[in-house]
Write a protein that binds this DNA or RNA. Structure first.
Length: 313
DNA sequence: GTGGATAAACTGAAATACGC
DNA sequence: GCGTATTTCAGTTTATCCAC
């Protein structure tokens, strides 16, 4: 194997996998990944679960659980680990893996893809947020993804597939730790009760005029550019791409919709209608008879007082 | 090739500002 | 107070990203 001398545990026997799941359930945090078989078909199913217990990404603490066509083992994994709120589960692009691990029951999930996306580019200067890109950036490790699209439904898994599967959960904890450090720099914990209102209002007023002027210029140039590229049939210029899409809108009156559904014995339309001020006025006499959903909308807005607009900074 | 999540763009309605 | 223009907000559609 790629990691000479390591003890990556590739488990294929049900009993061993159950023991491994029980062992993994003792940790407060796990770094996980999955591989799916027949991913190009409708018959996609989970083939392998990789788990790591060491924050440093120690290859000795990697488990490869072969769960291909073993729904009872997958269920054990879900109930013991995925649905267990006491264990933090870290995935890259968690939404993909959780499709096969019962998203509805999943608890205490961390997604490194979402973490990376939330960090400003100035702190994380990468082209995209794929695992491969983050591994190269944080671990200086070129991830070979050629095995990603290999046949994960074939048995036995090749040594190259096992290496690939293990490597994902070797780099994942390192990426996770690095992202946590960047997250702390990007968004230090702030308590609104203790914020300095003088400093914030001054900063807000200093920035506002520049921002408004820049925004106007930006929108003006953008609109001119759209019109110009459209008129000149230019699809690409200086890295700016032009795209034109058309779509159809259909409208029907509610009365017609009701008439047609009744005539065709279809279920009555149950779409909610926003009760605007106008509707509220019209329905006043029967307002108390109308079952309705009510929700309070709270919005906070800021405005610079007119008599202070000209204060120089 | 598939599909879910998210971001960006777009659209229409409501609220607000403005001029008379 | 009225009519119109502009801005803001909310909801919908489209595009992009990512996993395998």
């Amino acid at each position: 194997m790629f990691f000479k001398g390591n003890a990556v545990q590739y488990l294929t026997i049900g009993l061993e996998i159950r023991e491994a799941i029980a062992h993994l359930a003792q940790y407060p945090i796990l770094w996980l990944d999955t591989e799916t078989a027949d991913y190009r078909s409708k018959n996609r199913r989970i083939a392998l679960v990789q788990a790591q217990t060491d924050p440093g990404g120690d290859p000795d603490q990697v488990f490869l659980l072969d769960v291909l066509d073993q729904p009872e083992l997958i269920e054990t994994l879900i109930t013991t680990i995925i649905a267990n709120p006491k264990i933090e589960k870290v995935f890259h692009n968690a939404s993909y893996d959780l499709r096969f691990l019962d998203q509805a029951r999943a608890q205490n999930i961390t997604c490194t893809l979402n973490m990376a996306r939330a960090i400003p580019k100035s702190l994380l200067p990468v082209q995209d947020h794929k695992l491969k890109t983050l591994a190269a950036h944080f671990c200086n490790l070129p991830l070979d993804k050629t095995e990603q699209g290999s046949d994960w439904g074939r048995r036995p898994l090749s040594p190259a597939q096992q290496d690939y599967a293990a490597l994902d959960v070797i780099v994942l904890p390192q990426i996770h730790q690095a992202l946590l450090r960047l997250q702390a720099i990007a968004a230090p914990a702030r308590d609104p009760q203790r914020e300095d209102l003088d400093a914030l209002t001054l900063a807000y007023r200093q920035i506002s005029p520049k921002y408004e002027a820049m925004k106007k210029e930006y929108e003006s140039i953008k609109e001119r550019l759209k019109q110009a590229m459209d008129a000149q049939q230019c699809k690409h210029c200086n890295g700016v791409q032009y795209q034109k899409t058309t779509s159809m809108d259909y409208k029907a009156s509610f009365a017609d919709l009701l008439a047609v559904t009744q005539a065709q014995q279809l279920p009555p339309p149950s779409l909610p209608i926003k009760l605007t001020k106008e509707w509220q006025k019209q329905l006043k006499p029967v307002w108390h008879l109308l079952p309705r959903e009510e929700a309070v909308q709270v919005r906070i807005s800021l405005k610079i007082a007119k008599d202070e607009e000209d204060v120089p900074f």
